[in-house]
Amino acid sequence: MPEIRPTDDATGSAGGEIVLQAEGLSKNFAGFSAVSGVDLAVRRGTIHALIGPNGAGKTTCFNLLTKFLTPTGGVIRYMGRDITRMKPADVARLGLVRSFQISAVFPNLTVKENVRIALQRRIRGSSLDFWRSESVLHALDQDALALVEDVGLSAYAEHLAVELSYGRKRALEIATTLALKPDMLLLDEPMAGMGHEDIDRTAALIKRVSRNRTILMVEHNLSVVASLSDRITVLARGQVLSEGDYATVSTNPRVIEAYIGAGHA
């Protein structure tokens, strides 16, 4: 995918053209409005964070953008294309790939097979032809093992994913996601449930994979958000409260009141 950056700048904080855009995004659950009228624009090459206090609608918003929920109102565009009514599997095929809050691996497959599942769609026979031999899969082993090595799991390549520690499961999940060569990643609380060491390691990994990619993440850990993100959108009660870089949003009095202030009160 050739990169077009009309407003390329050294810091990358402004980013390129808009990759993922939501306009007036709304979702009602039986009368309760979880997200209402959210506008969001994620620019190419940036790490964009979605933060907000509990119940702000972050996860709903995230699930709407990845199509795991269908919006009640509004439009979502990915690379200029209207994806509002598309199915999640088809959005993934466009290169917009999500992660999950709880580590999403295939527990009864080996680490190598986990990554290979993502690579598998590349080959013919990835579809429903059940009569093909698994030997066609061995052609993908090398690529799969390279990705496994990339996240430091080589020693566990033949282990079942269920046996891995939590931090390693997250690393495996990232390797699997990268196997799709996605243009854009949506990470749902990548640091959730992690200890300090794992957080630093994962933050470095995210920074590394963000090269040539666009990332939107929901994250609770504010120090991670501050150090990683180029741009931050703050949600509260299903609406956008503030948007900008960390310095801007963290000094916004409304944000302090709704989010940070709540913790100090």
């Binding site: 990845t66 795991f68 999640p88 599997a89 088809d90 993934a92 095929r93 790939v97 999500r98 992660s99 999950f100 999403a104 691996v105 295939f106 527990p107 009864n108 497959l109 599942i117 993502a118 769609r121 699997t176 996601t177 799709l180």
Partner: peptide, 11 residues
């Protein structure tokens, strides 16, 4: 093993 994850990988 994990249907939502498989869907998110394009299946």
């Amino acid at each position: 093993d994990n249907e939502p994850r498989a869907i998110s990988l394009g299946y």
